[in-house]
Amino acid sequence: MTTDTTSTAGPPATARVVDRAQYGLAAFLVVVGGCVLLDARGLHRGFADQPVQPYAVPYVVGTVVVILGLALAFATWRGDVPQAEEGEDVDLTQSSDWLTVAKLVGVFVLNLLVVNRLGWAISGALLFAGAAWALGSRTWIKDLAIGAALSLITWYGFYVGLGLPIPPGVLDGVL
């Protein structure tokens, strides 16, 4: 290897681009691999006629995940940058808007916390309206109405059409 090209003294054209967030992914992989290995240590020998022990595959997978994490860290340090995925509605020319993502995750988590208590017909409507709000819609009443229509239609559709009894929650007896 030669001189450290990341030094700010060098001309900008030669500066190595390092995607620092990718170190986070590398660390995540090492942690995941470590968990798999730790978990495998806790497994006992299986039955005598079990030629592949329950811990055999986890040891292999865990080790490789750790190695891949280290390899990614090394590649990142060498200036390897990911190619982010494109899509019809994706505009990669602007910076990432993680606030919207956080709002969406929040709305989703709220739904999973209340779905059994309130029932899908209510929580689903809130999920739709909340997600639409997070994504920039500002027509509250319309969004809630659409969400309620969707969740009621799907609730009855699953209950009557598919025979899947979704728990009704607080609306038990009303629906």
């Binding site: 999920l127 739709f128 309206a129 728990p167």
Partner: peptide
């Protein structure tokens, strides 16, 4: 687009919830 992606989240949640009605799946 807000409706499209809110709808995707809605149906994704419904599909997973309907497997066993466990919030844990969500």
């Amino acid at each position: 687009r807000p409706y499209l992606y809110a709808g995707i989240l809605f149906f994704a949640a419904l599909g997973s919830y309907s497997i066993s009605f466990e919030p844990f799946d969500l």
